[in-house]
Simulated scan of single mutants.
Amino acid sequence: MAQADNFFQLADETQGIPRELGPGVTTRVFPGDQAMLSIVTLEPHAAGAIHSHPEEQWGVMLEGSGIRTQGGEEIPVKKGDFWRSPGDVPHGLRAGPEGCRVLDVFAPPRAAYRVAGKGFATG
């Protein structure tokens, strides 16, 4: 693999494995050997369904704002905030009025996200 194959641009919508997570919620997935990145875009007021998975997940609010639901709590989040979701903890995100973009990091990589598809593929 050429080293150039390991470099990406956040704004380049053609890169990554596309996945539609729900109405108004899309992602581009970048799988690695030990971790996986996902760039999630939520349209204004769009919500990702509450779900869980065994992989640990970290999220960073890159743009916009929203309400992060995790373990039954609702926590407001804005640009620059980041969080950890332990494996098997129910979680989701509802975008604010301007929508939002989030960088998610999964460890280990989620097997179902290695191919294009729809939904959260929680098993």
Score class of each variant (00 low, 15 high):
85 S>T: 08
15 Q>G: 06
78 K>I: 13
26 T>S: 07
103 L>E: 04
48 G>P: 04
66 G>C: 04
28 R>N: 01
34 Q>W: 09
53 H>R: 14
12 D>L: 02
37 L>G: 05
31 P>T: 02
19 R>D: 06
7 F>Q: 13
52 S>W: 02
6 N>P: 05
20 E>Y: 04
84 R>T: 10
78 K>Q: 15
40 V>H: 07
109 P>F: 09
38 S>A: 14
5 D>E: 11
36 M>R: 07
83 W>N: 01
48 G>L: 07
111 A>I: 11
17 I>S: 04
11 A>W: 00
81 D>W: 07
117 G>P: 12
28 R>L: 00
96 G>P: 01
80 G>E: 08
72 G>C: 07
36 M>V: 03
50 I>L: 14
63 E>M: 12
58 W>M: 13
62 L>W: 08
61 M>V: 14
14 T>Y: 06
41 T>E: 15
88 D>G: 08
90 P>I: 03
108 P>V: 08
69 T>P: 10
62 L>N: 05
14 T>E: 07
24 G>Y: 02
108 P>A: 11
27 T>D: 11
3 Q>E: 10
47 A>E: 02
47 A>C: 02
45 H>L: 14
120 F>N: 15
59 G>T: 15
24 G>R: 00
19 R>W: 02
69 T>M: 12
71 G>W: 13
104 D>Q: 08
73 E>D: 10
34 Q>C: 12
44 P>E: 03
87 G>R: 00
81 D>G: 09
82 F>T: 07
120 F>D: 14
115 V>C: 09
51 H>P: 00
103 L>T: 10
21 L>Q: 04
98 E>I: 03
61 M>E: 08
123 G>K: 13
16 G>L: 08
77 V>Y: 05
33 D>T: 03
110 R>D: 05
78 K>G: 08
62 L>C: 06
25 V>H: 00
52 S>Q: 05
112 A>D: 12
35 A>N: 07
76 P>V: 15
38 S>K: 03
48 G>R: 07
17 I>K: 02
108 P>Y: 05
65 S>T: 15
35 A>M: 15
51 H>T: 00
70 Q>N: 10
60 V>Q: 13
63 E>H: 05
113 Y>R: 09
9 Q>T: 03
54 P>M: 15
24 G>D: 01
114 R>D: 02
1 M>E: 11
32 G>H: 05
26 T>M: 02
72 G>H: 12
117 G>Y: 12
